[in-house]
Computed example of a mutant assay.
Amino acid sequence: MDERMVEAAQTGDINLLYELILNDPYVLDRIDPVPFSHTPLHVAASAGHIEFMMEMIKLKPTFARKLNHGGFSPMHLALQSDRTQAVLRLLRFDEGLFRVKGREDLTPLHHVVQIGNVDLLLSYLRFVLRLLQM
């Protein structure tokens, strides 16, 4: 991934993202076909840049389920970095992201249970219950 794209994702700079797209309209398309890649969404999720994450998901929704070289999805990385608000925003986009199997078949839900984050687990369960009631 281009260094400036990494910088945009690490700092949450949406203007830089669109500047890079303006200079190269295929900048994100070159990342997408790579089966295991650390996408700008992975970087932004780790850093907790929610607005950047949501902009990236709008542009490339496939990045939300992509595993990086370490076998982790953006949701896994947000959880590992203790970015609860980023996790909740990703869940609003797609509640199935909590069930994406990563390294050693572990899902983000497994991670939440292992670390004992009861508040996040309850938030997830409330979210799922609301969906079931619809």
Rank of each mutant, 00 (worst) to 15 (best):
M53E: 02
D82T: 13
S81W: 01
I21M: 02
F36C: 15
V128I: 05
L90E: 06
H42R: 08
S46F: 01
V112G: 02
V118C: 06
H49F: 00
P33I: 15
R103Q: 12
A45C: 01
Q114H: 02
T62N: 12
N15P: 01
D24R: 12
L59R: 08
I50A: 07
P74S: 02
L67Y: 09
R89P: 03
T84E: 12
Y124L: 10
M53Y: 00
A8R: 11
L20I: 13
I115F: 01
G48R: 04
I21H: 01
K101I: 12
T39E: 10
P40E: 06
V128T: 04
F72S: 05
V34F: 12
G96S: 14
D29E: 14
V128F: 05
Y26K: 10
L121I: 01
P61F: 03
L17N: 11
I115H: 00
H38P: 05
M54K: 10
G102A: 10
H49S: 03
T11I: 15
P74M: 03
R30Y: 12
D24K: 10
L16K: 15
V87C: 11
L125Q: 07
Y124T: 02
K58R: 06
R130H: 11
L67D: 11
E7I: 10
Q85W: 00
A64V: 05
R65G: 11
T62Y: 07
R4M: 13
Y26G: 10
A78T: 04
S73T: 13
G71A: 07
I115R: 09
V113F: 02
R126K: 06
S46W: 01
G48E: 10
A9D: 08
S73M: 02
N23H: 12
A47V: 12
F72Y: 15
H110E: 11
R65Q: 12
M56R: 00
H111S: 09
R89N: 05
G71K: 03
I57H: 00
L28T: 02
R83T: 01
G71L: 10
N117F: 00
L28I: 01
D29S: 13
D105W: 15
F52H: 06
T84L: 04
S46T: 15
V112T: 09
G96R: 09
R30V: 14
L131H: 03
